[in-house]
Design a protein around this nucleic acid. Sequence first.
DNA 1: CCTTTGTTTAACAATTTTGTCAAACATAAC
DNA 2: GTTATGTTTGACAAAATTGTTAAACAAAGG
Lengths: 201, 201
Amino acid sequence: MPVKDCKTEQLIKDTAKRIFITEGKMSATTQDIADAAGVNRTLLHYYFRSRDVLFNMVFKEALTKLRERLHEVLGSGLPFKMKVENLVNVFYEELIKSPYLETFIALHLNQHPDKYEEMFTGLPGGKERLKNFLKEIQSEMEKGSIAEMKPLNFFINLFALMAYPFVARPIYLKMFDLTDQGYNKILLERKKNIISMLFLK
Amino acid sequence: MPVKDCKTEQLIKDTAKRIFITEGKMSATTQDIADAAGVNRTLLHYYFRSRDVLFNMVFKEALTKLRERLHEVLGSGLPFKMKVENLVNVFYEELIKSPYLETFIALHLNQHPDKYEEMFTGLPGGKERLKNFLKEIQSEMEKGSIAEMKPLNFFINLFALMAYPFVARPIYLKMFDLTDQGYNKILLERKKNIISMLFLK
DNA sequence: CCTTTGTTTAACAATTTTGTCAAACATAAC
DNA sequence: GTTATGTTTGACAAAATTGTTAAACAAAGG
């Protein structure tokens, strides 16, 4: 008897991931995905039963991975500034692979408000690490290394500065006649920029 | 003979606008829109011929309005900091009505790279005002009122800090157990925060 | 070679979404 | 009231998308 061969299954999943969250084509059809993977569309149903199942699997896996990586950084016990620098590095690594993941999440949470409960409560201690990070932010303000504001605003600023440029790429390419390479260079330069925006030095 | 009565036409367009770019439901069907507007679906075709025409009309109108308002602020001749403050006010006003407009634009530019040429070259003098704004940013850096960086990065930071929190709202609601009202309050507080992030004072 | 198990395919069915049409309807002008 | 013009409706057709099935195929084990 032949051994299970999950090459094709994995190929389909990877392709779906690429189309949905790397290229941002969230309404790609099963045919689009099958074509991109170079397989018969029926295989998609054979391995995943329905488009919906595949879609949610891709969504869930990407979100879970991102959350785990951020969770780890938050719990790393490093000094605050290094922790933030790590956060930027890790988030950047994920954003390069999945620039549309956050948009994806936001739009879906918006349209299925209650559907994705477990994904946010999934990691034990997740909320605690978040709260703890907000406390660290608070105490850094008291130390004077970052500007005074609501800790949540510091948090939002951090993620805004990281995530937005990845999503808005097509706009800036058009607006300033940039090339993809030129924009990538700017994105990388921004890493330092983000830190210096957030810290008073 | 009866006079043309564009009430229904306008109702459909307004409803589509709300669903597409206020609520972010970009793949709403003609039936969804007709239901939300409380009219027969056929009317949508009667007035707009196809879903695609309606979709593009909504998209184009919202983008045109936003661009015109920003264009006006950029050309206002105000001192730099006041200009940026006005930009924040104007952009906020538009974002409150159309929080998903930028996502909408980014995703569509991404998927139809060449389709929306005129929309970006539309306003005469648009590119000039942009370039001029970048020069103003440059000269502010030399004056020392803002931190040193590539002017484009200052520009991206400004829009990141403004736009991202509107799109990411559903994420933060879940993540920090906030209410809509609570989040709105934070968004408003951010206006000042954004300015103080950008300026060295 | 035959069987078993898993893979792949094409043909088909079901569903969803979009688009069309002709007839009913409303109202203002005559 | 009749006519003309624009509006609204339901029934229908067309297209796109998803899902199912049975049969062909491939490879490993007996």
